[in-house]
Amino acid sequence: MRRHSCFVFLFCGVFLPGILGFPQTNTSIDCDSLLPNYEAEPQTSAPPYIIAVSFDNFEPGNEVQVTLEALGDAGFKGFNLQAREIDGDVPVGTFKITDPNTKGLECHNMTNSAVINANSDVKQKVTTTWIAPQNVRELQFM
């Protein structure tokens, strides 16, 4: 069976404008741009956060632990996390909601294809589980 590679991009990656923290829990999210649907300016400074995965190679159906963690004393109130193929514009795979600070979001008619904040509490770290689908090439978490 062919092994797949998973590339993790930090918040300062190519899609910086699409990676915003937001405090509201009742805010809708644009699944394509990853931006909240309210007035917000994208962060332009270096992000004090990282995205880490439990392993880089996966097979279809594997569960990959994904952690969003603040660096230093910085915290965050909100987030939107998706997995996408490199140069892709739709989410791939699904998330298993295991952290009470997270909730699933339906994008492109796929339940739990993204994970967002479940409350506006300041968080240092949230962890979720991503389930790899069939036929995925190289991907990134955004």
Rank of each mutant, 00 (worst) to 15 (best):
M1Y: 07
R2H: 08
H4C: 05
F7D: 12
L10V: 02
F11W: 13
P17D: 03
L20A: 05
Q24A: 08
N26S: 10
I29N: 01
D32T: 14
L35G: 00
P36V: 10
P36I: 05
E39A: 09
E41I: 11
E41M: 10
E41D: 09
P42A: 07
P42M: 04
Q43D: 10
Q43I: 14
T44E: 07
I50D: 14
V53D: 02
S54L: 06
F55W: 05
N57E: 15
N57H: 14
E59V: 14
E59D: 12
P60W: 00
G61P: 02
N62Q: 09
N62C: 03
V66E: 11
A70Q: 09
G72Q: 08
D73K: 12
A74G: 05
A74V: 09
F76R: 03
K77Y: 07
K77E: 14
G78V: 04
G78M: 03
G78K: 02
F79M: 10
N80S: 13
N80E: 09
Q82H: 13
A83L: 06
R84P: 03
I86Y: 13
D87K: 07
V90T: 15
P91F: 00
G93M: 02
I97K: 08
I97C: 04
D99C: 12
N101I: 01
T102E: 06
G104W: 04
G104S: 07
L105S: 10
E106R: 11
C107N: 06
H108D: 14
H108W: 04
N109A: 15
S113F: 01
A114Q: 05
N117A: 10
N117S: 11
A118W: 06
D121S: 12
K123P: 01
K125F: 02
K125V: 01
T127M: 06
T128K: 03
T128A: 05
I131R: 07
A132Y: 00
P133H: 03
V136G: 01
R137Y: 13
E138Y: 07
L139N: 01
Q140R: 05
F141G: 00
M142A: 04
M142Y: 06
